[in-house]
């Protein structure tokens, strides 16, 4: 559980490292999870909780055979991060808009994303598949 304070992002990084190690996740997955959760939580703190520092954000992470499923739960105003406009990643430097990149990262790096409003809670679910295992020599 994190408080809605930007400095908690550093605590998040440590927690993800710890969980990822105990679940034996490959470094590429740890990086993706860390960045995606950082972006979503930074959004929730800045917009959902509007810089209130006493909000709470719960993070649950479960490892399944072929995937890791993470749920982020907060009690801020209803907000679907995935309903936002697609980020500008193609225009020239002069015209390039600042913003929206965080959610673009989440969409790009995470295999499945979903949002639902459950009574007074926002529930975001992220699913990341394990990379395919290289076939062992005995399979050939």
């Amino acid at each position: 559980m994190l408080r809605s304070d930007t400095h908690e992002i550093r605590k998040l990084a440590d927690a993800i490292e710890y969980l990822a190690e105990s679940m034996q996740l490959p470094p590429a997955m740890v990086f993706k999870l860390n960045l995606a959760l950082d972006e979503l939580i930074t959004n929730t703190i800045a917009y959902g909780y509007a810089e209130r520092k006493d909000g709470e954000i719960d993070i649950e992470m479960r490892r399944h055979d072929d995937r890791v499923v993470v749920r982020l739960i907060d009690q801020a105003e209803a907000f679907d991060p995935f309903a936002a406009a697609v980020a500008d990643t193609t225009s020239s430097l002069e015209d390039r808009k600042i913003g929206g990149l965080g959610i673009h990262f989440v969409r790009t790096l995470i295999d499945e994303v979903s949002y639902m409003r459950d009574e007074d809670r926002n529930v975001i679910t992220l699913t990341l598949l394990f990379p395919p295992q290289p076939a062992s020599a005995s399979d050939g």
Partner: peptide, 19 residues
């Protein structure tokens, strides 16, 4: 070791100011 979108925003602002 790590850059999030907040960090990229800084790089974009610097690029725009310099331009």
């Amino acid at each position: 070791s790590y850059v999030s979108s907040a960090g990229l925003r800084v790089v974009l602002v610097v690029a725009k100011r310099l331009k």
